[in-house]
Write a protein that binds this DNA or RNA. Structure first.
Lengths: 483, 483
DNA sequence: TGAGATTAGTACGGACAAATT
DNA sequence: CAATTTGTCCGTACTAATCTC
């Protein structure tokens, strides 16, 4: 190494190549010696070179080496005596021995039952953006400037401090105002719990209201994310077929519905069906989890929420901003019956302690300034235009022979495929070509199979929709003719 | 009403006074009829007047009435037949009847076992800011301007779209860099999971690695939030007394530690103790949850993290930004052994689907620009000064006869109280006077009782600390003399 | 920043086809 | 057959909000 001679044992600890440049010099010295001690190359009692000597040998300052020695000392790797020197400390030998790593890794990871359930669930769709993908809003038209101003407001001093686990009070108040004005729901800010979206709302609900083995009713087709929450908990899933008349005679503990617009079909539960559900829940001492999915983009006038037509203490209402604002926002809310408020907020404190205040304050400001309702209005119009355009394109192609089985409005449409074409296979092929179109059967519970394509029309421009639909049509024709 | 005669039943539905002027005309018509139907005044099968007639009677346009009828139809309140008329629909009678609300509410809420556990746990401290409160950083010195710029960066177009449930990739990379540089931890961004703080990290870990009834070891004293997570899950809690030598011969499934700085005492587990813990975990096929609490503000060089001294696949490392940045940020991370990455990210998707991307992107930018490490450095110096000042003040008062049992550094200090003074009672009295000082016994598990005061020195100015300490001292003197 | 053009939402009136009695 | 009623279409007028220059 340098002109100064080190013992070979020490010298071989330091190789220039192991210095990454990213870390500090003294850390590197520390790391080299630490490794040598842990590997057992420098055994207990071994006398390290004086800092002065090592520094010179390595061509660095003595202080740097001294710092490294200090770190080793404070960690307990070495013992130093003034006037004597530094010695490697006595440490449990079998831990120092590098051989212990080689012992075969245990194959069985001790996971919880719960985790086992999750592994058995199908992974949810990834979030890579593709063409004609459903569920993604028209980000191009998002008022970035206004949002930026709101975020800037959220970085003011006041927003740094408090973080009620239930969520920012201002935001909860804004949500209450919004729900009253647009959904006819009368609620108190106390009842509102800020979540990261319907998914977390379902999770909290499941955790706090359901026990393993209990029955839960979910829609089919429906969103697999929420039903996954229930099955991961070890609940028994009863599918409620949305194609048929709704009749509930189950002893389920909870029913999870999207009454105003079913996902993905967009169908609406009729008033009497909605009333029956609540009646059933009250009679059966069960719960209703109402996901007010997509009501913002319902065609014409959105139907009343379950919660507004009956002030039942059985209904938990959830909504999300991520679909109306932008996906990465991940902000939503739930409205709880007053009786559940204490349990939920208390548990929340232990589960995640509440979400980041920053986005909450920004969102409250965004709503308070009227930006939100203005944006919604615009999006509604925009999506109607987009849907119209896509339908016109479909009319021009062979896809026009497929039945449109989704209700008007929303952010996507659903085309029914003939039985001879497997929607998953077709979507798999489309995926390879860069399409984010989903298979309808992917949203069905066991026992039901619906064959169809779920096509989003929100985000893509007309120049993309036209050739996109044409490519889908030509693939369809090819598959149809082959079958 | 008008010259046109309506049936009295219909006429009495509409009273001019109920029209607020704020709502639209057609909504008012809708609401009047809806109410009458729900009240049962218009029974099922009742024929509504033709739109033309009602319009004339009310003195409004037919189209307005038609819009209202359309809404009633789409909600399911009425049925319309062309050429015939509109009739009130058949609806479940006992729900329409307003009397059904009067039936006595069920007393027993069907909650999960899990929720029952939460109710039995003590509520965690509220977040109202008080004097000398521990755990709150010096917000005054937070670089708001830099943070604002980072937030502004986070509202750019690109940040709107993707939201990997594990967290923003850029942030995970920054965290990996930080951990390597400051904590000597080598990890891959893949292993990092963004959380809302240590609390959520503990929750996720508990959910996915522990079953009901299994044993967990926690420190005492320690943070009650994380131990609460385990006991809510129905785990058996074994307390590890930090005052005594650490020896583990338990068959626990998991040990939760703050090895670099115990909370609230700030004590450090020695190297050989830390090695023993990992050895135990590997031998016992158990897990170590390492909360690297407060290592940023350790005195001198922080000791290496468990994770850095042994690349064991048993160690889960967690850290948080909320204490170094600001409490309302609620952002943290965990580093998982590679084997657990799949389970955790997959489960995460179902639990909350990931956190808001906005703060993550901002935080990544904040770190990437070097603002974070600069801020940390400043805070470290500042807190040393603050601690020094507080200690000096304590020296001047009767509090100087109390033993300082916390390690130097950190964000608070701990004074031991004599047995004759109950710390909870004293803190209760202090709370009334606006102090956020905590009782040490509040952090102890059953079977241990330590009597002391946990006093924060970060946030308050010198002008507050001086009289604050004096008031605490005079209360102490009063209590001591009484006992 | 502000005046002028544009657009959406509400309310109104009328015409006519389709279905029912 | 005629009378009635809903559903769909047209156009107009006014207001408030939004966009553009």
């Amino acid at each position: 190494m340098g002109p100064v001679l080190l013992q070979p044992k020490i010298a071989q600890c330091f190789s220039r190549s192991s210095f990454s440049g990213k870390e500090t010099l003294y850390r590197w010295v520390f790391r080299c010696l630490e490794l040598a001690i842990r590997k057992g190359e420098l055994e207990a009692g071994f006398k390290l070179p004086p800092t002065r000597l090592l520094a010179e040998a390595l061509g660095i300052a003595r202080n740097t080496v001294k710092t490294a020695y200090e770190m080793l000392l404070s960690e307990g790797y070495i013992e130093s005596r003034v006037g004597d020197g530094s010695y490697v400390a006595e440490l449990p030998q079998d831990l120092i021995n590098p051989g212990h790593k080689s012992k075969k890794a245990r194959a069985d990871l001790p996971l919880s039952e719960y985790a086992q359930q999750y592994i058995s669930l199908p992974p949810l769709n990834s979030d890579i953006r593709k063409i004609l993908q459903p569920g993604i809003p028209a980000l191009r038209d998002f008022p970035l400037g206004q949002w930026k101003r709101c975020l800037s407001f959220a970085s003011s001093f006041k927003a740094l401090e408090s973080f009620p686990p239930a969520g920012d009070l201002k935001l909860r108040e804004q949500i209450v105002d919004y729900l009253l004005k647009f959904r006819g729901i009368e609620a108190d800010p106390e009842q509102v719990l800020i979540t990261s979206g319907s998914q977390q709302a379902a999770f909290l609900t499941a955790q706090l209201l359901l026990n393993k083995g209990e029955k839960v009713i979910v829609e089919t087709p429906g969103f697999p994310g929420t039903s996954g929450v229930f099955s991961s908990l070890g609940c028994q899933i009863d599918a409620l077929n949305m194609e048929e008349a709704v009749s509930i005679d189950s002893d389920a503990r909870l029913i999870n519905l999207t009454p105003s617009r079913n996902f993905p079909l967009g169908h609406t539960l009729s008033l009497s069906q909605r009333l029956k559900v609540v009646q059933w829940a009250e009679h059966n001492n069960s719960w209703v989890l109402e996901d007010d999915y997509d009501s913002e983009f319902a065609e014409g006038y959105p139907v009343s929420a379950l919660l507004s037509i009956c002030e039942s203490d059985r209904v938990i209402y959830t909504g999300t901003f991520s679909r109306s604002m932008f996906p990465a926002l991940r902000l939503g809310y739930m409205v709880l019956p007053p009786k559940l408020v204490t349990v939920f907020t208390r548990a929340r404190r232990y589960m995640d302690g509440g979400l980041s205040q920053v986005v909450q304050v920004a969102m409250a400001e965004f709503m308070g300034q009227g930006f939100y309702s203005r944006h919604l209005k615009k999006m509604r119009q925009h999506y109607i235009k987009q849907a119209d355009h896509m339908l016109k394109q479909i009319e021009k192609t062979s896809l026009s022979e497929l039945a449109l089985i989704s209700a008007p409005g929303g952010m996507h449409l659903v085309l029914k495929l003939p039985d001879c074409i497997d929607d998953r296979a077709m979507v798999g092929e489309l995926d390879k070509r860069g399409f984010g179109i989903r298979a309808l059967s992917g949203y069905c519970q066991q026992g039901q199979s619906m064959n169809g394509l779920v096509i989003g029309f929100c985000v893509d421009k007309e120049e993309v929709i036209k050739p996109g639909i044409e490519e889908v049509a030509s693939l369809y024709k090819a598959l149809r003719d082959k079958a």
